[in-house]
């Protein structure tokens, strides 16, 4: 049975820039149908973790299995939502076009996106409530809308596993709600989603599992078990007051 394998199985992932370790021996297993948040202070290696899993940065050691197979073999089942700021939004292209980029991998060489691809893209846009803006130029979008375009581009890939880098960063309330709904829909469909998240307060509400990361994995597992004041304190170091406030909020 396929389901015996966790959706994501990362072992001993280690990344070093020059000689400085950025990630030390990180293990993470995520079962199917789980929403997992990665939290940790700035420079903790959250983005690096996702990029190393996706092969975008070179890992000094470690292995990544997706549903029991090497990532390179399962690439088509994995979707990636990069940080919004990683691209130039003044690029001359439309919302629909960006979403269709998610299908380029399936199209392969030479083939152009056609009618089917357009329909798929429109459906993905509808899922994030953006179908009316399909023809809009991407520079005319608000931050939240840009984020939803990126999400639609990942949705259209019809993947099993999603990696999202700070999707909640600087978005409006409408978008935040749209993303949360989307995450829940994905979970209902049995998909697995890993989200780099910076808002500690919403972790218990939005996610099932959490990994606390600061160069090494401090803890990972069910939110109610590992999202403790003690673990947060270990992760965030000295900023105890801030951590306690969050913990207090969580208690209440």
């Amino acid at each position: 049975m396929k389901q015996e394998h966790p959706a994501i199985d990362v072992r001993d992932l280690t990344v070093a820039y020059r000689e400085k370790p950025v990630l030390w021996d990180v293990d993470l297993q995520v079962p199917s149908g789980v929403l997992l948040a990665i939290v940790g202070p700035n420079g903790a290696g959250k983005t690096t973790f996702i990029k190393a899993v996706l092969g975008l940065v070179h890992a000094a050691a470690g292995s990544v299995l997706i549903h029991g197979e090497a990532y390179s073999a399962k690439r088509k089942r994995v979707a990636y939502v990069p940080q919004r700021g990683s691209v130039d939004w003044d690029f001359p292209t439309s919302v629909l076009d960006v979403v269709m980029m998610g299908l380029y991998g399936q199209l392969g060489w030479l083939r152009r996106p056609g009618k089917t691809e357009k329909e798929k893209a429109l459906r993905a846009l509808a899922e994030v409530g953006m179908e009316e803006l399909a023809d809009r130029q991407i520079s005319q979008l608000s931050g939240g809308q840009q984020q939803r375009v990126f999400l639609a581009r990942a949705l259209v890939q019809q993947a099993e596993v999603y990696f999202m880098d700070e999707p909640f960063q600087g978005v409006d309330a409408t978008t935040e709600k749209a993303i949360v709904d989307l995450l829940r829909n994905l979970r209902e469909d049995g998909k697995t989603v890993v989200v780099v998240h910076h808002d500690l307060q919403t972790v218990p509400e939005y996610f099932d599992q959490v990994m606390l990361l600061n160069v090494r994995r401090i803890a990972s597992g069910l939110v109610e078990e590992v999202f403790t004041e003690e673990n947060l304190r270990t992760t965030y170091g000295g900023r105890v007051a801030f951590v306690s406030a969050v913990a207090a909020r969580k208690e209440s």
Partner: peptide, 8 residues
């Protein structure tokens, strides 16, 4: 295991 998982 080191060779397997750490890809050493």
């Amino acid at each position: 295991h080191l060779e397997d998982h750490l890809r050493w």
